[in-house]
């Protein structure tokens, strides 16, 4: 396999653009924020206006500034957690799949145990014991999230490694006496890339959800601005019931958009991994042009008719 080529479908392009947009927001968001997100020097409960695009909170804070500033913490924690979890997943999954035997039994058990324990309750338990100083540390939170989120990736990677391990080209390098490390790095790793990318996307998705949830519950420092704390304050001040949609809807939409972007890119990876998912179909207009009245159906191979037959058929058909 040469370089990984992700099919360039509209879905993937849209997803990548969304992720690009929020990555940019992560980098420049805090600088773009018009005001200090914590400053309470505006009138409370302002509705959106030219000076406050998203209005103000009941404490008189500028919501737009909170959204822009909060992007960084949210995305950084998600990235840290996603990367660490993926690293753990590689370490455990690839080793288990490649080594086999006892090592595989032990490592698989480890990841299966972590898969079976429900993540969020465990996260809440661990987090509730953290001293409040640590709760404001994005990296500590990220690490804890990664601890509950690596197991799925490990499982997928193990399965993929096992199937690769038994393929001819790996067998061949083993026979010619290449070292295990070299086989792993040079032969197996490149073929794991698509699975790895997909697992990274999912762990990031999971991490955003977990972080935002912890913040929403009040288990991270409420003074660090992220989209979850915005929702926490909005909920605490009854914004949903007071119809202050501009307070709690924007952070929720941002979270959902980042997630959608990741999922859309993953469609592309799925289609790469499983060629049967790739679209080979034609649009209705293309079909009509070549004289195929309907979508091809299994068991009814289309018959191309002569042009005059098509026109006659299409005028006869009620649709």
């Amino acid at each position: 396999m040469s370089a990984v080529q992700i099919p360039k479908s509209p879905k993937v392009i849209l997803g990548a653009s969304i992720i690009g947009f929020f990555t940019l927001m992560m980098i420049v968001g805090p600088y773009l924020a018009p005001y200090d997100p914590s400053a309470t020097n505006f009138a409370p409960n302002l509705t959106p206006s030219a000076s406050h695009w998203l209005g103000t909170t009941s404490l008189g804070q500028d919501i737009m500034s909170q959204l822009l500033t909060g992007a960084r913490a949210t995305m950084v924690v998600a990235l840290v957690a996603g990367l660490v979890a993926t690293f753990l997943a590689i370490a455990v999954g690839v080793a288990a799949g490649y080594l086999g035997g006892r090592a595989d039994d032990g490592l698989s058990l480890l990841s299966n145990v972590f898969l079976a324990i429900p993540g969020l309750p465990l996260l809440i338990v661990i987090d509730s014991y953290l001293p409040s100083g640590e709760r404001s540390n994005a990296f500590v939170i990220g690490l804890i999230i990664s601890l509950t989120g690596w197991a799925w990736g490990a499982r997928v990677l193990r399965a993929q490694t096992m199937s690769l391990r038994n393929r001819d080209f790996v067998e061949a390098s083993r026979i010619i006496g290449e070292s295990r490390t070299r086989i792993m790095v040079a032969e197996i790793a490149p073929n794991l890339l698509p699975v790895l990318a997909s697992s990274l996307l999912f762990t990031i998705l999971y991490s955003i959800g977990a972080y935002v949830t912890l913040a929403y519950v009040g288990l991270t420092s409420t003074s660090v601005w992220n989209w979850g704390t915005m929702l926490y304050w909005a909920q605490a001040n009854n914004a949903p019931l007071s119809n202050e949609w501009y307070w709690f809807v924007p952070p929720g939409i941002c979270i959902a958009l980042v997630g959608t972007g990741l999922a859309l890119v993953n469609f592309g990876i799925d289609e790469f991994i499983n060629p049967r998912l790739r679209e080979g179909g034609l649009s209705a207009r293309q079909r009509r042009r070549i004289g195929m009245p309907r979508r091809p159906r299994l068991g009814f191979t289309p018959v191309r008719r002569l042009p005059e037959t098509i026109t006659r058929l299409s005028t006869m058909e009620p649709r």
């Binding site: 080979g280 179909g281 299994l298 068991g299 191979t301 289309p302 191309r304």
Partner: peptide, 16 residues
């Protein structure tokens, strides 16, 4: 043979 029985899968088309 599959085309004659109309069982051939897409993207096959019986062209004549």
């Amino acid at each position: 043979v599959y085309a004659v029985t109309r069982l051939l899968r897409s993207p096959a088309v019986i062209s004549g």
